[in-house]
Nucleic acid binder design. Structure first.
Length: 291
DNA sequence: CTAGTAGCCTGCCTGC
DNA sequence: TGCAGGCAGGCTACTA
């Protein structure tokens, strides 16, 4: 399940592989993967463009597009940008950069064909993943639902202990569901929330407003530690996602609590507990994360 | 405004 | 052996 560190790793790979190469054709094998505009407009909008740079916001990938010089469009001063390509991998989406022809997977949803037989292929088993083409001179945040409502990036200056404290003020909801709320913090998913709460020593069901200043600081530190560590390991800490080259990382890290229900805590040997919260699995150590 | 939940979807696993 | 049901979870839409 790609979360912020995995999406960032994909972004770095895409920046290395895909920039400055002309896109000849966009082929859509599953129509609902294209969230905006229509499939036809998506194909026409992408054809003849090239990626200037890939950016990331939360779990969204954004490719800034330029007009490919190869194409028959006459260059004009107002037309040197060609909009944006937005991608969200959701649960099972994978972006693969292919330099040689490869047989289609049964999960191939979109093929972006570049010059010299190169291809950016979007595979997605569970079909939750989405792509957007944002026309020139339009704000991606207004086209891509969710993007405009994201909270701060967890490693940004804006995400300070004071900000997290403010978020927790006057809220009764469990801290775990607040951390999953992308409008409060961008990029955390179920895995990194469970791990962050463990690192911070905070029980997942604790009401936000019950956290003391000390606990807020501890949780803030836990979030940044977990995300930073996963980033430096290329996002392969807990998940089996694949980088754009198809390699699946080094499995360098080990989860402390995620999917370890019943197993001994790596810190205190007590069994990790598993419960359900807001329709999601939730793992924690009852000793290291007391109520 | 906030917060909780159904639903989307496929593959894997368990149990009858 | 076959099949039903549970589970996995990011996000939106809906409800209270």
């Amino acid at each position: 399940v790609p979360e912020l560190p995995e999406v960032e790793t994909v972004r770095l790979g895409l920046n290395k592989a895909t920039c400055g190469i002309s896109m000849m054709e966009a082929e859509v094998l599953l129509a609902r993967t294209v969230a905006y505009p229509s499939v036809e407009q998506f194909q026409q909008g992408l054809q003849g463009t090239m990626v200037t740079t890939w950016m990331r916001r939360g779990k969204y990938l954004l490719a800034q597009l330029g007009r490919s010089p190869h194409k028959s469009h006459p260059p004009s001063k107002s037309d040197h940008t060609a909009g944006w390509l937005g991608v969200h991998l959701r649960m099972t989406g994978q972006l693969l950069w292919l330099t040689n022809a490869e047989p289609l997977s049964k999960h191939t949803r979109v093929r972006l064909r570049f010059e010299d037989g190169q291809e950016l292929r979007f595979n997605d088993q569970r079909t939750f993943g989405q792509m957007w083409w944002v026309p020139p001179n339009q704000d991606p945040a207004e086209i891509i639902s969710g993007l405009g409502r994201l909270g701060p990036e967890p490693l940004s200056a804006e995400f300070s202990p004071a900000y997290l404290g403010k978020v927790c003020e006057n809220r009764d909801r469990p801290i775990k569901t607040a951390l999953l709320d992308q409008t409060l913090i961008a990029g955390l998913g179920n895995i990194y929330v469970d791990e962050s709460l463990f690192f911070g020593g905070i029980h997942p069901t604790r009401p936000c407003r019950s956290l003391t200043l000390t606990e807020v600081k501890s949780l803030h530190s836990g979030i940044q530690t977990v995300i930073q560590k996963a980033l430096t390991e290329g996002g392969t800490t807990f998940s089996d996602f694949r980088q754009v080259t198809g390699t699946n990382g080094n499995y360098g890290g080990v989860a402390w609590v995620y999917r370890r229900g019943g197993e001994p805590c790596r810190n205190c040997q007590q069994p990790i507990q598993k419960m359900r919260m807001a329709g999601r699995s939730c793992h924690f150590c009852p000793v290291c994360q007391p109520l």
